[in-house]
Design a protein around this nucleic acid. Structure first.
Lengths: 333, 333
DNA sequence: CGTACATATACTCACAATGAGCATAAGCTG
DNA sequence: CAGCTTATGCTCATTGTGAGTATATGTACG
């Protein structure tokens, strides 16, 4: 059965680093198979892709090893923390769509790198992830984008529903995803929001996938797009990372060995996209035993010098779910 | 590159149901490729496997659809809730080990089925999952197994470590996994525990994979084994399900539409493997808005009749993480 | 030198959630 | 009716959370 259609396993990586207050992911500028400037905005056509490498079924012993291998090769980065995200295998994926010969199965990984060495490969490049998901950054309050563009579009989409029941369901769904009409904003629902916007037609990819009849209008479309379904993979990664922060001390994979508490807080805020109460945050990480002070002082704060802290590895033994403590979330004792 | 080694994508399912107080998974008695009774205990050799179906790369549009398809076909079950678990692709997997031609990539899914219709296929069968992981059931306190067998074996393994540093690491790891020496027992760490036991050599699979020289001794080996790495997949599924209970109302996928609070509690306890405080449990699900009373009464309790409840779907909008509330875990508001 | 400013750090307080237990209600059996 | 079983209601100490006030210790600049 199906011996004729070969299967190719691809490995995608969402490689995350945080510089100052900016969370970044590594992207590759795609080399386009067809001619570049074919009428569309070339920026969109030669879109970004996530770093990608195929699995060599004969040579690679392990998926994760294969991933680490080609990431090191392609980007020169030694990734530390690696976690498998999700496996995507829909046939609709661009590039495999219309009778394309091989069936592509993509296994996506999340990788965290500590420092931010500039990628030495010419085509690799760090980008702030909020350029792909501008609606996800609420550190300065809910972005205007949501009130001005997304919300009206969602309301239109809700009222366009054929039946009353479908209308209710759409209303519900939009409310949960974007924290409207009484629901709270849940930072983890990145994928849900992206998929909703895709369905509503507010992202470039949905216009692209609907067929070539419509010309995607850059103005009505939100965030920087990516090729194929890579933005969906990226959304999966961000959601997973945000969730993981709550119950695993993964932030420290993104920080230098010693840091001030404010630095730590800024990184968490950058990832989660919201601001945190400073005093409570430090109480939480301190009393929770997540960090311990080194005696050293960082005088480069602009105000009173801050003590430098380091991650306490022992916390893994002591606490049940040593996350960083986010609002609305009890730090499980 | 690697065009010669074909790739086969397999789909495995951990199909879970709960009957009374017994959590069950659907297993298939493997039809063995080689001759059956070749010296080893035939029960072990013709071990259980998880339900499995290959992906047809030409026909199947989606991984999840493919899964639903062959599960329905093979077992006659209509699964409701489905969630992708993990993708396993190590080459060491049994059956693909020694120069086997195709490379097998297994995408594992977790599926929850509400009732427990007896599988109509002859080779399919429900088994209590604690027969595979007897150390995971702590509803009657920590099982003797842990104190009598696992703990001593772990201690021996710790002291066998070559260096002092390795000894510390092993001690730490064993402590975290099994809740020894001050650490708390974390129900979610199912995979961690299984992999530790595998490494220590306490499960049949590790003896099997070490080579054929040692004859696996059934007495010194814990839990019912499975073929290939299916028990590892199963452990992944259980851990994920236990974790998910905390922040998503998935239990209700396993319960009839209406139920008493005690029934609900019993199911949760069966899954998580620990007993819960009755009054607090009902306070949590009640005040959390997770359930609402139907007016009806179930008189079949043996004592005072209990009110029947149903799941409140609206809770998805209202609460942040509507799980069932487990000890040591704050129900996130 | 001193004042404004910026940041770090300490402490308080109201409130909600949790863990544990006691008390009462409402069926059944004999 | 007594005694058993299970359901259900309520209390209470403890802990965690959200928010705010107060103080310490640097720098920049007049």
């Amino acid at each position: 059965m199906g011996e004729e259609t070969p299967v190719v396993v691809g490995l995608n990586a969402v490689i995350v680093a945080v510089t100052r207050e900016s969370p970044r992911i590594l992207t590759i500028t795609a080399s386009r198979r067809g001619p570049a400037g074919s009428g569309r905005d070339p920026t969109w056509v030669d879109g970004d892709v996530l770093p990608y490498g195929p699995l060599d079924p004969a040579a690679d012993r392990t998926l994760e090893l294969a991933l680490r291998g080609w990431v090191a090769e392609q980007t020169g980065l030694e990734v530390g923390y690696v976690e498998q995200l999700y496996t995507f295998g829909d046939r609709e994926r661009e590039g495999t769509r219309a009778g394309g010969v091989p069936r592509v199965i993509s296994v996506a990984y999340l990788a965290l790198v500590r420092e931010k060495p500039p990628p030495d490969t010419s085509r690799a490049r760090w980008r702030d992830w909020y350029t792909f998901f501008p609606w996800e950054d609420r550190r300065n309050g809910p972005p205007k984008l949501v009130a001005e563009t997304i919300r009206p579009a969602l309301e239109a989409w809700v009222s366009e529903a054929p039946a009353a029941l479908a209308r209710r369901e759409r209303l519900e769904r939009a409310g949960i995803a974007f924290g409207l009409s009484g629901s709270a904003w849940d930072p983890d629902r990145v994928l849900e929001r992206y998929e909703l916007l895709y369905e509503v037609g507010l992202v470039w990819e949905s216009v692209r996938d609907r067929g070539r009849s419509e010309t995607p209008d850059r103005a009505t479309v939100l965030g920087r797009p990516m090729n194929a379904d890579h933005r969906r993979i990226l959304a999966t990664g961000l959601g997973r990372l945000r969730g993981k922060l709550r119950y695993r001390p993964v932030v420290f994979e993104l920080l230098p060995p010693s840091f001030t508490l404010t630095q730590l807080q800024r990184v968490v805020e950058a990832l989660v996209g919201i601001r945190l109460h400073k005093q409570n945050f430090r109480r939480l990480v301190g009393r929770g035993g997540l960090v311990e002070g080194t005696g050293e002082i960082d005088a480069d704060t602009g105000g009173r010098p801050a003590e430098l802290y380091r991650f306490r590895r022992e916390v893994l033994r002591e606490r049940r779910a040593p996350g960083v403590g986010l609002p609305g979330v009890a730090a499980r004792s």
